[in-house]
Design a protein around this nucleic acid. Sequence first.
RNA 1: GGUGGCGUGUCUGAGCGGCCUAAAGAGCACGCCUCGAAAGCGUGUGUGGGGGAAACUUCACCGUGGGUUCAAAUCCCACCGCCACCGCCA
Length: 420
Amino acid sequence: MIDLKVVRENPEAARRSQEVRGEDPSLIDALIAADDARRLALIEFETLRAEQNQLSKSVGSAKGDERNALLESAKELATKVKAADAVRAELEEKTNALQLQISNLIDPDAPVGGEADFVVLEEIGTPRDFTKDGFEPKDHVEIGKILKAIDTERGAKVSGSRFYYLTGPGALLEFALINFAISSAVKAGFIPVIPPVLVKPAAMEGTGFLGQAAENVFHLEEDDFYLVGTSEVPLAAYHRDEVLEELPVRYAGYSSCFRREAGTYGKDTRGIIRVHQFDKVEMFIYCKPEDAKAEHQRLLQWEKDFLNAMEIPYRVIDVASGDLGSSANRKFDCEAWIPTQGTYREVTSTSNCTEFQSRRLNIRYKAEDGTKPLATLNGTLVAIPRMIVAILENHQNEDGSVNVPAALRPFLGVDTLVPA
RNA sequence: GGUGGCGUGUCUGAGCGGCCUAAAGAGCACGCCUCGAAAGCGUGUGUGGGGGAAACUUCACCGUGGGUUCAAAUCCCACCGCCACCGCCA
């Protein structure tokens, strides 16, 4: 939720933010108008209410005829108060609804434009030259079959498209990645967390996933639970309605993630790049607003460290305004080189949500001058399927065996994955 | 799933229609005392919104949402959560 005061003080910046997101700038003016009306109605109600409080008090001590006369006028006043309160409530609701519709203000430094208008910040590593190695790279589906590591056919049989089984070395690879990720995170000072993956609507709404992103969320109708698409949701809602004393707080959440992937028919249908269910280690940080930019850079650095450890070529992009989630004011993606696609594909992503989520979730910290909303940030440490894709494809040998990155060997116990 | 009990400020906890402007204690902060500390004594002690240049003022908040009433922490309804016991269960 954006700060009403900021909007009132600088409506121009808010309108511009809406514009570069490709969202409706007139919402800002509607919000300001609604808020003005709301404040007028609030004054009206409060004046009447103060009168009523006073009158009610005198009823208590009055006797006989005097009391009856007071009751008479008090009754009249009560209906007025009720009416004024109804008006106030309606306007408050209207203001609130508008406020919830507006996405976070974009960082002015973020590139402007749509999905294709990202800016490449750096490229790290060099894509492997397979012609020099003398063979045609196989894609991860093929390698997965040869190694008996990934079974998409049976995944589809049992659960439908975009489902898969990780078997044998595939399953072991997941455990190794998780263990490496968690142990690195703990070394970096993160508190490891295994959160619930079914959450109530308030948690979804508070993190900003029930806006435009709602169609990508699984919902259990009967029990009104949502399946989280990322542990960012339970990690953000973890401190809902709390006042934190010590900042920053850093959590590394490990959970399954569920995504409907509505509107992606025909996109990435082969393999496990885009799936309905996967496991992920997510970093989540609560910090002071003034530290948010620095924390964002740290998150990006931890993501880069992980990819470096996987020995995978990748690039870092500064995601353009129109492609940001509604909670984010800036987002960096790390994209790994996928040899068989001849392109970089997103494997991790980190967003600075400033005070947007904490305002919705009512999470504050003790500042010198009172309790204030804090900043939240999130970043992927490792999303299993995509990392497996990157590892299998980049580190494959001609016979379908795969060299294990040195960092993973202690966790996997072998140097090479070999065909069964 | 069933039955019973309970949700009050930072915490413990009283209040069960109008002297609630929420008792009391603890904690915390400041002051006095002290070489210093403890004890003791005194003072203060929430959040959010509105108005105001400010002093200040006003409204809301006793799990959440409705309702009854001139007036609700207090009465009624629904929901959520916690605890105990019973049933079922990895």
